[in-house]
């Protein structure tokens, strides 16, 4: 029963994530700046191609995130969709007909476009399944660090004085610890896992966001519209939510997209350091790590690292390019 519940918690949280993203976009979508940016973005071919690629990854990750209870335990949609692909006895090269073993190659049950891994699982399917880890890390961390950073940044700039001092003290302190050490310390205590990794990355990640938003809000507070709103007797909360927040949201989006790519990369590095994804989770970091021994085998296994690193590269590249395109779309002069 417990396992059953967990499945639905996970399924629901995917919905929640999309709902949060959609809600945030909905709030600003009607404003002139966002309309103009969207118009420019549509004319940017690189940006649109990157966005399409991101959507493909999102789709794959979502399929792997939705589980349905089955008689033999729950299965993800992606697992169900690829159930027809047989498992082999061990490594096999792309499109080979036998396993890699030199001594006694056994015939394969099927063809595998990108080969199979040590356990005989299809490399392409494993790589696709690992998309989930990357997206969950990015998504969970974003849900932690974006609200934290934006809120503290806006409050610091709006109230100045001691609020600003406290926020600045917090982020100076966090920034004073080299990021890798901070991540490692937190994960050593909290243990491996997607959730703990997101917490660790969230704790280090909010600093950059808070700095950015603080700086921009300081500029916005100087603008006449804030003074006008104050003069009309609007409450601080209303000024923050109605005027300041929508005016910095585009920076939040750009930073979030570019930050997401950093998070995907961080997952790979942390998994390599042994404080990242738990053993048994499909993750690109773990696949890349495993390839160290695979490349020193004779004959060497190159398809696992190529596929997993390739997928990771494509996602990070798409995020970086899309982030750049967003920046250009919102700020055409300094793009």
């Amino acid at each position: 029963m417990a396992a059953f519940d967990l499945v639905w918690v996970q399924n629901l949280s995917v919905f929640t994530g999309y709902a949060l993203l959609g809600g945030a976009l909905w709030r600003v979508a009607g404003t002139e700046r966002w309309k103009a940016a969207w118009h420019r973005l549509r004319g940017d071919r690189t940006g649109m191609a990157a966005l399409a690629l991101i959507c493909v990854f999102l789709l794959v990750g979502t399929l792997e995130s939705f589980s349905v209870p089955q008689p033999t335990g729950s299965r993800t949609l992606l697992q169900l969709a690829t159930a027809g692909i047989p498992q082999e006895k061990g490594y096999s090269a792309p499109l080979a007909t036998t396993t890699l073993s030199v001594a006694n190659p056994t015939p394969l049950a099927g063809r595998h476009l990108l080969g199979t891994d040590a356990l005989g699982r299809d490399t392409l399917v494993q790589t696709l399944r690992a998309t989930r880890s990357a997206l969950w890390i990015g998504g969970l961390t974003s849900i932690i660090y974006i609200p934290l950073g934006v809120l503290l940044g806006i409050l610091a700039a709006f109230y100045r004085g001691w609020v600003d001092d406290v926020v600045q003290y917090f982020y100076s302190t966090v920034a004073a610890v080299p990021e890798i050490l901070m991540l490692v310390s937190i994960l050593m205590v909290l243990g491996k896992g997607l959730g703990t990794m997101a917490i660790a990355l969230g704790i280090t990640g909010w600093v950059g966001m808070a700095r950015l938003i603080r700086g921009e809000t300081l500029r916005q507070v100087e603008r006449p519209y804030v003074a006008a709103a104050r003069a009309m007797g609007q409450s601080d909360w209303k000024i923050l939510m109605r005027h300041l927040l929508p005016n910095v949201m585009h920076l939040v989006l750009i930073k979030a997209v570019l930050g997401f790519s950093g998070l995907v990369l961080a997952e790979a590095v942390l998994s390599y350091l042994g404080v990242g994804s738990p053993v048994g989770t499909a993750s690109w970091g773990a696949m890349i790590d495993a390839s160290r021994s695979e490349l020193s085998r004779e004959p060497f296994v190159w398809w696992n690292i190529s596929t997993s690193a390739g997928a990771l590269f494509l996602l990070v590249l798409a995020l970086n390019l899309f982030g750049d395109s967003l920046r250009r779309a919102f700020d055409p002069k300094h793009g």
């Binding site: 390599y272 690193a309 590269f313």
Partner: peptide, 10 residues
């Protein structure tokens, strides 16, 4: 951008 998108281990 491509160079930036490769993790150091790779």
């Amino acid at each position: 951008v491509a160079l930036m998108s490769v993790p150091v281990m790779v």
